[in-house]
Design a protein around this nucleic acid. Structure first.
Ligand code: DTP
Ligand code: MG
Length: 852
DNA sequence: GGGGGAAGGACCA
DNA sequence: TTCCTGGTCCTTCCCCC
């Protein structure tokens, strides 16, 4: 709730600029699209909307124009502001396009669409359930109230909870100055110099929340806690059971009874916590939520459960009051002349022609005042994703960024462990210093929570992003995040969970080994590592390299009979055959095989350009790419589409066979490399790293596939080095290859011996930028995390699930009415979408990476 | 045209 | 001088069948 307010306080200010720049032409065009008398969009209306969102409780009665001016002055020119402006311009363009489409519509078309929508409305109306009494309870200025309670000197001063970078909430005195949740502290101080900032104390809020919950349980044991300070209750049963107690003599009407019960509940909350709560009572959750805000603070509102009252109420309600309609949707609808819920129905036809089916259902239900009546729909299953992210002072220092990704992965691992979760999809989230958000993901074949695996993959994704940037403009980020999704529970999924790379490897060895053919190395249609498909991405962004497969150990086993459970238990030696040279390795240690393969590959590569895609001019990065030819083995599902490379083949003459059965080797020769997937002239991206004259001769040496730094002149010495390299996973820079190839490779990386890897290198990369963490934002993040982890523990659900279906840009969902309860999730109805075949995911990961 | 993954985006507390 | 964090759902794009 507060955050939507936060969004709007920013967005509204941006809109001022944006709208002021609009020429009258556009405004007239916008106003041309009017299908009824209420849908006219005038300049005045626009300007009047360019103010702070005063819908939020306590946000009325101040000089909005003055506040807007202060906010604008404080943020104008900042990158944040610029980004917001750009976003607004994009939205403006989108809206313009939408209006253009609307203008093309013939009356006949509109009429037809309207009829269809009316039919839907009839159907919805028929299903209207007015039998339940739903209450939405929301604590007043929750954090601030707790602090004011505990520090009485804060009672009469404007105060806010939060740090300098972001406020969680503010008290009502501060709200009069325009200070609100989600606002950065420095702007709040400008709005209200006397503002007292109180750091948050989340454990305290959690404790208070638990007390409030106990009160809820009296009235509805199945209450649905939506956040620390918010819950839905269905008090219908309680009303029936306790009517007599509230009105012993005569029959009480629903309103009196419900009001009395809720008043009592709020009183009990106050007695227990000394804090006030507000409540909304209505026939469904959507309406109840709106109602709880109407008499804030310390008030309640009852909306009679009859259709007429509901329609009167809803018709006058601004659309923005509906949970799920945010800044963007509000602007879109406003452009169509819809600012009140009552204006939806007269525009059914137009909406139908402009929005998706999902959205339509949602609009129809809003227009009829319909919403969720069954709180058990909030009951559902497991969490869908888990993530951690950090904001810091913008930096392009690759070492720093890599380290952060590693740290995040470890942190995420901790969170996942706590919840017993493992995931299959790793997503890296980045935000540039210009506030451009990006996510890049890669699917694993097996679920894991191993910080090493997650970290490796996330770093790979980051490398890919870095490599897209021109050398003179290295990727400069202010936020990094790692997310795992496609979650399952660690213990309860059908098969045992793979939590480490080696376990994963072992498992597959055992389970799949029996049918494998031994002397072939599985390779996908591979390309050099870090290659990106520039053209294929609709967003103009790169996608990770598809169809990467690591060799499965299945294929390294001379015969299935040699591999049994004892291998998994590591209690017995196994014979493993190198798929590259065919050499048999007697070892129970997979790492031994791995080392051998790496060395083998590397030497093969050096001798005979293993991969036709490898860019020989790519200096030190090309050698690491070579070792990444052989790809992740995490994807049993991809086995069928593998190409099988006969061992000892150089890439230039490699015969690969499209093969669905691994024993079918009769196919035609194929070219392994997809040229379209090649990285586009990224040569320049990599700084030139030259080996100094007194270092080894790179042409005849074996580059360590683990650190990509040390080169050896013989296999023996390489193996020796590999041992130490593998044993020391905590290289100071976790991905030296990246750091070394980075433009900012001035970071002094150290190899396992502690020797600077730059001792033998010259790097003409660019200077790094400041790498110092922002302690302020770090503090803030910590506390926010505390808070949110508390919320998650409590509800394990997002606000999205709490508050109803939410429209996205142009298309609104219809299914959001079922919501989570407690730590469970709703079962969502699938919306019809245009689905297309995805690009195959995957990114190169050297075998060795999995053993680091 | 359907299937399904990746990426972006809206929204919420 | 400064603009958070973690989660969900939806849509679009893309490629393949
Ligand atoms: N954008 C935000 N960032 C961090 N914390 C937030 C944010 N918005 C809300 N919160 C926290 C602080 C709030 O006290 C708590 C409950 O939110 P909410 O009910 O929307 O506001 P509130 O309880 O502070 O005021 P209100 O009286 O309007 O309900 O959640
Ligand atoms: Mg509240």
């Amino acid at each position: 709730m507060s955050d939507s307010a936060e969004k709007s306080w920013v967005d509204d200010v941006i809109m001022v600029t944006s709208q002021e720049n609009q020429d009258d032409d556009k405004l007239f065009k916008m106003s041309d699209v009017k299908l009824n008398s209420t849908s006219q969009v005038t300049k005045h209306q626009h300007i009047s909307n360019l103010t702070l969102n005063t819908h939020k409780a306590g946000m009325q009665g101040f000089d909005a124009a003055k506040i807007n001016e202060i906010i604008r002055k404080a943020s104008e020119g900042s990158r944040f502001y610029q980004h917001k402006q750009q976003a607004q311009q994009k939205l403006d363009a989108k809206i313009k396009e939408m209006l253009h489409t609307a203008q093309q519509m013939s009356p006949q078309l509109l009429e037809k669409a309207t009829k269809k929508m009316e039919a839907v409305a009839l159907e919805c109306e028929a299903g209207r359930d007015l039998s339940r009494t739903i209450v939405h309870v929301d604590m007043d200025m929750f954090y601030a109230a707790v602090e004011m309670r505990d520090q009485p000197n804060l009672k009469d001063v404007p105060m806010a909870v939060g740090g300098n970078s972001m406020l969680s909430t503010s008290n009502y005195i501060a709200r009069k100055f325009g200070v609100r949740a989600g606002m950065p502290g420095f702007i709040a101080r400008q709005l209200c110099p006397a503002l007292v900032l109180v750091p948050p104390n989340f454990s305290k809020y959690k404790a208070v929340s638990r007390v409030v919950e106990q009160v809820f349980a009296i009235y509805d044991p199945n209450y649905a806690m939506m956040s620390l300070d918010e819950a839905y209750l269905d008090i219908t049963d309680y009303m029936e059971a306790n009517a007599d107690a509230y009105q012993a003599k005569s029959e009480v009407d629903n309103e009196t009874l419900a009001e009395a019960i809720v008043r009592e509940m709020r009183l009990k909350i106050q007695e227990a916590t000394q804090l006030t709560a507000s409540a909304g009572i209505a026939a469904n959750t959507r309406l109840a939520k709106v109602c709880s805000d109407l008499n804030k603070p310390n008030g309640q509102y009852y909306l009679p459960s009859d259709t007429r009252a509901i329609m009167d109420f809803i018709n006058k309600l601004p659309i923005r009051k509906i949970s799920g309609i945010g800044n963007v949707t509000e602007q879109q609808l406003k452009a169509l002349g819809i600012t009140l819920c009552g204006q939806i129905r007269p525009n059914y036809g137009l909406l139908r022609l402009l929005f998706s089916d999902c959205s339509l259902d949602y609009f129809v239900r809003i227009s009829l005042g319909l919403g969720e009546t069954d709180l058990s729909n909030y009951t559902s299953g497991e969490q869908k994703s888990i993530s951690t992210e950090t904001t810091f002072t913008g930096t392009s220092c690759k070492q720093k960024l890599m380290q952060m990704v590693s740290d995040l992965s470890i942190e995420l691992h901790g969170d996942m462990k706590k919840k017993g979760l493992v995931g299959k999809l790793v997503t890296l989230k980045t935000k540039t210093v210009n506030f451009v958000l990006k996510t890049r993901s890669m699917a694993l074949g097996e679920p894991t929570s191993d910080p090493e695996v997650m970290g490796k993959v996330a770093r790979k994704l980051l490398i890919a992003e870095m490599e897209k940037c021109p050398v003179d403009e290295p990727l400069s980020l202010r936020l990094l995040g790692v997310r795992m999704s496609n979650l399952s529970e660690e213990a309860s999924s059908g098969r045992a969970k793979q939590t480490t790379i080696s376990k994963m490897f072992e498992k597959q060895t055992v389970s799949a080994g029996r049918e494998s053919s031994s002397n072939y190395c599985l390779v996908t249609e591979s390309v050099a590592s870090n290659t990106l498909s520039e053209a294929s991405d609709k967003h103009g962004s790169d996608s990770v390299n598809p169809e990467k497969i690591l060799p499965s150990l299945d294929n390294y086993c001379p015969s299935s009979s040699n591999i049994d459970a004892t291998v998994t238990n590591s209690s017995k030696n196994a014979q493993l055959i190198c798929p590259i040279c065919g050499e048999i390795i007697n070892s129970k240690f997979l790492t031994a095989l791995n080392r051998h393969i790496d060395a083998c590959l590397d030497s093969n590569v050096k001798k005979k350009s293993f991969n036709p895609c490898v860019d020989e001019t790519n200096n030190c990065s090309s050698s690491s790419e070579n070792s990444e030819e052989i790809q992740e083995k995490f994807r049993p599902s991809m086995i069928d589409n593998l190409k099988i490379l006969k061992p000892n083949l150089s890439s230039s003459s490699a015969q690969s066979v499209d093969c669905h059965s691994q024993n079918d080797l009769n196919g035609d020769d194929t070219v392994i490399c997809h040229s379209k997937l090649r990285r586009d002239s990224t040569d320049d991206v990599n700084p030139k790293i030259h080996y100094s004259t007194d270092s080894w001769d790179i042409r005849d040496s074996l580059l360590c596939p683990v650190c990509n730094v040390v080169t050896c002149t013989s296999l023996d010495s390489l193996n020796q080095h590999l041992d130490s390299c593998l044993a020391t996973s905590n290289l100071q820079c976790d991905s030296p290859d990246v750091c070394l190839t980075s433009p900012s490779a001035q970071c002094d990386l150290r190899n396992p011996t502690g020797k600077s890897v730059f001792e033998n290198l010259e790097c003409d990369g660019t200077q790094t930028q400041g790498c110092l963490p922002d302690s302020k934002s770090d503090d803030c993040r910590k506390s926010l995390q505390d808070y949110f982890s508390g919320v998650q523990t409590l509800t394990s659900c997002s606000s999205d699930l709490r508050t109803g279906p939410r429209p996205s840009t142009t298309f609104l969902s219809s299914n959001g009415e079922s919501r989570v309860r407690g730590s469970k999730r709703k079962v969502s109805k699938k919306c019809p979408t245009i689905n297309k075949k995805p690009r195959t995911s995957g990114i190169d990961i050297p075998i060795t990476d999995f053993f680091l």
